[in-house]
Simulated scan of single mutants.
Amino acid sequence: MSDADQHSGGCQCGAVRYRTTGAPAKTAVCHCRYCQLRTGSAFGVSVYFPEDAVTLEQGTLTDYAFQTESGRTFTTRFCPRCGTSVLWTIGLFPGMIGVAGGTFDPPSFWYDVKREVFTRSKAPFVELCIADSSETSSAYAPIGPDPAHRNGAR
């Protein structure tokens, strides 16, 4: 495998470092409330790899897990020192790890983003040029409502 097939990245403070090997299995810009809360921004850039293609090379991550309204587990993995959300797993994609797109070392955005999901909660100021766009996701199947605090209630 060539060096071009490997990409490194990490958290803001440098305590956590990872390496990916090979091409991503999936990439997307996601406008769901989970990604908005995970990133503190209008959307998340999700780059998914098979579990065995992501290696934590330095540091430790803290996990925060919750259940989505579809009844699946979402586990965010972040640096306990600076709080950067680096990796995550979701029950929708077993055997895959999501990598926060902006945490790759420069050139940070070396991958192609081919899909945009959960545009129903897209911020009105966001305009992206992505042809494959959907209001939810092909696997979206809620079994109950989201907790009120994720939708602005106190």
Rank of each mutant, 00 (worst) to 15 (best):
Ala53Glu: 10
Ala4Met: 10
Cys13Gln: 12
Ser137Ile: 14
Val29Trp: 01
Phe66Ala: 11
Pro107Tyr: 04
Val29Asp: 01
Cys129Val: 12
Gly152Pro: 05
Gly95Ser: 02
Thr60Tyr: 00
His7Asp: 09
Gly83Asp: 10
Leu128Trp: 02
Trp110Asp: 15
Ala28Met: 07
Glu51Trp: 05
Pro24Met: 04
Asn151Trp: 06
Ala141Thr: 14
Thr136Val: 11
Thr27Pro: 06
Leu56Asp: 14
Val117Glu: 08
Pro147Glu: 10
Ala53Ile: 05
Ala53Phe: 05
Asp105Cys: 14
Gln58Ser: 12
Thr55Asp: 08
Tyr140Arg: 07
Ser108Cys: 08
Arg115Tyr: 06
Ser138Phe: 09
Asp105Gly: 11
Ser137Leu: 10
Lys114Ile: 12
Thr75Trp: 05
Arg17Thr: 03
Pro94Asn: 15
Ala23Gln: 13
Gly40Val: 10
Ser137Gly: 13
Phe118Arg: 01
Arg33Asn: 00
Arg150Ala: 01
Thr136Arg: 11
Thr39Ala: 01
Gly102Val: 00
Cys13Met: 15
Thr76Phe: 00
Gly14Arg: 13
Pro147Lys: 08
Thr103Asp: 11
Ala28Tyr: 03
Ala23Phe: 03
Asp3Ile: 09
Ala141Phe: 09
Val54Ser: 04
Ala53His: 14
Gly9His: 05
Gln6Asp: 12
Val16Met: 08
Arg38Cys: 09
Trp110Gln: 15
Ser2Thr: 15
Thr55Phe: 01
Ala15Met: 01
Thr62Gln: 15
Arg115Val: 06
Ser133Arg: 11
Arg154Asn: 08
Gly102Lys: 04
Ser70Thr: 07
Phe93Glu: 12
Lys114Glu: 11
Leu56Pro: 10
Gly40Gln: 09
Ala42Ser: 12
Gln67Asp: 08
Ser133His: 03
Cys30Phe: 03
Leu128Lys: 00
Gly98Pro: 02
Gly95Pro: 03
Gly59Gln: 05
Arg38Glu: 07
Gly22Gln: 01
Pro24Ile: 02
Gly144Thr: 04
Thr68Trp: 00
Ser46Leu: 15
Ala139Ile: 12
Trp88Thr: 11
Tyr111Ser: 06
Cys79Glu: 01
Gly152Asp: 01
Ala42Pro: 06
Gly102Asp: 02
